[in-house]
Design a protein around this nucleic acid. Structure first.
Lengths: 226, 226
DNA sequence: TTAGAATTCAAACAAGTGTTTGAAAACGAC
DNA sequence: GTCGTTTTCAAACACTTGTTTGAATTCTAA
């Protein structure tokens, strides 16, 4: 773009990003071709390469802008609960840390107006994405945010082995990923989710996550104990 | 194959299936080409089309044979706990239902000898697979097993709304999927899993899942309650 | 050993892939 | 209006994709 970028050029860039995002959700990264993207966006085929360089760079940009916003909201929420705890001389509770991390995801996922809705369905499955460069890039984007949240979670659960907290946080991300995907992706339970009200998803998921986090620690000598 | 199938032809079929499985795990379904499969299997390019028809049929067969075995083990385990409960005049406990469903997955995933190890990593992410025909096919393969397990879980949790049990089971599948993927796939928590002993994964996951299943039901009027 | 089916193989097929090119058009500042 | 830059466009590039073909080979059963 260089020095001057016309309004129309910005528009083209944006149309490509949003068309790509929607198609990535629907068909996956590999199965979405440049021609599918450009024709959906109503722009010339060469526009992607002109504005983004390569398809991989476009993929990267699709993820980058949404994750940046998502992590901004997460860290803002964490700042707030930590400040409130300091003011009251108390400690941040584990549930507050979880809420700060997972609420922004669900809110973006259930927000039909902005494009976040589509994207969150994409993000959930990208964690296990085979494409190496996507994985690498995603890990980098997440690193700082995860560090801060894990530190907060460790502090809120003194005495609990960090290894266990880490694993449980990992499990929680899986549950959340399916929570988002399940609202409109594959229906393994065909037509079974009668009550798929997105506003009820958050409390549903939060009570499950908290239950899992607070569960008795595993006894490695009695593996089947429940 | 028709009337006679030579030992060598069966061998070719099997080599293709196993090469395809390994490559699907590593690169994904779309990104794995016929030529990658046949050269990894050491067979001619046309062999896939000869033995399986199309690439999609091959994909289907890769999933079918593993899922069939997985669900066989699951239903066997469920039969056992249900028979034991009948003999003792008691009821099946929720933890027993969960163990019957999730233990076979983790056992196949941690079994390095048979090919199940690779496959489970693939299965976890296929639940959110964009490819429509794969989703459709997977839902069919799972239908009967899921019906029996959900019925058992409902029976073991009288008084709990089925809608909530369904959602929680859905969350559990997500947590399990990440549990398997996380042991060797993307390391969002870079190098953080010091203790990735597969034999400890089962108790770790089970205590988390049970904690989530037993969590207080969500209060839709106080969404943030924890 | 021989007839017939099953399987393998090299080569080619049409269609689709991401990317590049160079000319045409649209733009913003003077 | 003019100049120089930015952006669009149609066309082509080299390459990969899944699949098909027909001949050569291997197997099985009589």
């Amino acid at each position: 773009m260089g020095e001057a970028t016309s309004r129309q050029a910005l528009d083209t860039r944006l149309r490509i990003l949003e068309a790509a995002e929607a198609l990535f959700v629907e068909h996956g990264l590999e199965a979405t071709s440049m021609r599918m993207i450009t024709s959906a966006a109503g722009v010339n085929l060469a526009a992607v390469n002109y504005h983004f360089g390569t398809k991989d760079s476009l993929i990267q940009e699709v993820f980058r802008r949404r994750i940046a916003e998502l992590n901004r909201l997460r860290l803002l929420a964490l700042d707030e609960v930590q400040a409130a705890a300091r003011d009251q001389g108390g400690e941040v509770r584990p549930s507050q840390v979880l809420t700060a991390f997972f609420r922004p995801v669900l809110e973006m996922a259930s927000d039909a107006e902005h494009g976040g809705h589509n994207f969150m369905r994409l993000l959930g499955r990208t964690y296990t994405e085979p494409n190496a460069f996507v994985r690498q890039f995603l890990a980098e984007e997440y690193a700082e945010t995860l560090d801060r949240f894990m530190a907060a979670l460790y502090a809120s659960l003194p005495g609990v082995p960090r290894e266990e907290i880490l694993w449980r946080f990992h499990f929680m991300m899986g549950a959340t990923s399916y929570a988002i995907a399940g609202t409109d992706a594959l229906q393994l339970f065909a037509g079974a989710f009668d009550d798929a009200d997105p506003s009820r998803l958050m409390p549903r998921l939060m009570s499950f996550l908290l239950g899992g986090l607070r569960a008795p620690l595993p006894d490695f000598d009695r593996p089947d104990a429940g």
